[in-house]
Design a protein around this nucleic acid. Structure first.
Lengths: 347, 347
DNA sequence: CTGAAAGCGCTTACAG
DNA sequence: CTGAAAGCGCTTACAG
């Protein structure tokens, strides 16, 4: 690595970052004084403080957080380990966590395990050996997952997918409540002949959302049209084929609740093509508030937002409390939020 | 923080992680010997090595990479700073970078600046003070962006959105080439009356892709149907409205190339609703290979994959070389890859 | 083959 | 108000 006269390496970046010692030398004081001056400790003459600050500025000094961490035992870093390849769930969770930690001291770093156990172990290892203060594990489905165990050197919060071990802390989206919200909204919009098209039955999220809807229908004394929840896949094509079967069987439905926005998009398309108008004849709801899909639907799709930022926020709060020594084990559930767009406007 | 007899803190996680000293004490040797034994250095008796390894295992010892970094000046960490809220571009880039660095030594940590300059500075600061060995900056559009400057203490690679400063290293997707690929594919599939529906003209990506297509049409001696590139928005609704205008004006088109998969979805829908069959009468192409949209389209959408993993790979390689002292400034372009699905099958 | 010592960049009592 | 010294967890010459 050729070093030029002014200390710039051939890569175009400046050589070794300045240290406290460099600042001390330039300011003509001791390292200890620089540390105190820069950290706002008392017992430093105002004049000295200014001199030090100027020197630090001039050298572009950034304290080495790693060295600080060696002393304090904290690194101000939290690892977010995800398996969510498209980032649809983990990025909002990460944002919420960042917000909760505040722009201040704690940074959240994301690693992607791509749903691969080996990779998860590798990232876990990398994160722990970099001494993160805590971990947030974000699943790619809401299915409960294996615990990482109780013997990690830092606290762990599971988000979106809860841990199977109830001694762990988990934060999940309230899918049952979401199903209930959807039905309540349909009823408020004057619907009473409601069907439910769910996603893949293998997914707890699919079953929970449907279950909430069925519960609410029951409370309202309303029938579930088609007699049962229709389970299939999280795809538009499942939405299309299932709703065609549905209107064959029950031509008089006036509302369809879907397990996801993708399914709802398929439902909307198939309804339009079979000559039913939405929302006049049939109201349709999705789940996820995947803006890209929901706002561009015809008509724009009413849906349920999982408040993933709040999931992230809560995860961060739990983690922070645990780092401070107060863990709150168990599953913490975050309420969803209904977003009414045109697809469920009063008929 | 109440500590129990077995050294477990009330948070449910084990107390302070074991240090080299703990291992040394347990193994009955010196700290230096432990270090050598664990790092595979020579001059350690096999017997001693085993003893040390067992002690380390027993204590769940993980070396503190931060302390190691203090010595070596390297942390084995690279920061990936993005502004891509949905992660659509940055996650594939991150995966590519991880692959290039290898499962081995270097970890990639992602931070999201949410397109906010203040937040970007904050994350930059956090990353640098944690002494990352390098930075990858991923833009949310292909529009060139401000350089972070030449005075950072570590090398920087800009990915997806290039830096405006040619002294920087940038890796971009070849959008002009993508436009050309699309036309060549259409021609190979027997089309000759080709129109182009682009995204938002404010975006360089929109203009580049269109330009490549126009160039290729010219080379083939073919006209651009509708006489000019139709610029609009990156939405399905723009796809729908634009293609309706297009077939009014030019009823005899046999192919439409779109600036994105979203636009192409709108085009497909509007064509179907106006009674044109795809691909028999009109072929349609998208751009992005956004699986969710492309595979669920009717018919499945031919599109262009930007090979973002390769973008990430290249960025990592450039960064690695720069860390070693060999920077290759300038813009490095990654070729796209055409994915033929049914929407462009030979008519 | 093994260990005492110095030092990476920083902070924190403790003297002066 | 200022600075010398010890120490965080580790590695690396250098003695033994």
């Amino acid at each position: 690595m050729a070093e030029t006269a002014n200390g710039v390496v051939s890569g175009g970046f400046s050589a070794k970052p300045a240290t406290l010692r460099d600042v001390a030398a330039l300011a003509g004081v001791s390292v200890a004084t620089v540390s105190k001056a820069l950290n706002g400790r008392e017992h430093v003459r105002a004049e000295t403080r200014v001199k030090v600050q100027q020197a630090a500025e001039k050298l572009n000094f950034l304290p080495n957080v790693l060295a600080q961490g060696l002393l304090s035992g904290r690194t101000g870093t939290v690892g977010l380990l995800t398996s969510d390849l498209v980032g649809r769930f983990s990025l909002p969770v990460m944002m919420g966590a960042e917000d909760a930690f505040g722009a201040g001291s704690t940074s959240v770093f994301l690693c992607d395990a791509r749903g691969d156990g080996i990779r998860e172990q590798h990232h876990l290892h990398a994160l722990l050996s970099r001494r993160v203060d805590g971990l947030i594990i974000v699943g790619d489905t809401t299915n409960p997952r294996e615990s990482l165990g109780q013997h990690l050197p830092v606290p762990v919060v599971y988000a979106y997918a809860p841990s199977l071990d109830e001694r762990d802390m988990s934060v999940v989206s309230d899918n049952v409540g979401a199903g209930r919200q959807a039905v309540e909204h349909m009823v408020r919009s004057g619907r009473s002949r409601i069907a439910y098209i769910a996603g893949d039955k293998e997914f707890l999220a699919a079953r929970d959302r449907a279950e909430g809807a069925v519960q609410a229908l029951h409370q309202f004394g309303l029938p579930l049209m088609g007699d049962e929840v229709m389970y299939g896949a999280w795809t538009e094509s499942w939405g299309r084929s299932s709703v065609r079967a549905l209107i064959d069987k029950c031509p008089d439905i006036d509302a369809v609740i879907c397990g996801s926005d993708q399914i709802a998009r398929g439902v909307l398309d198939a309804l339009r093509e079979s000559g039913r108008t939405v929302p006049d004849e049939v109201a349709v709801m999705g789940h996820d508030n995947w803006e890209l899909l929901a706002t561009q639907a015809r008509p724009p799709l009413s849906t349920i937002d999982m408040n993933l930022e709040l999931v992230g926020r809560k995860a961060a709060q739990l983690l922070f409390a645990a780092i401070e020594g107060t863990a709150e084990p168990g599953i913490h559930s975050i309420s969803t939020r209904l977003l009414a767009r045109d697809s469920t406007a009063r008929g």
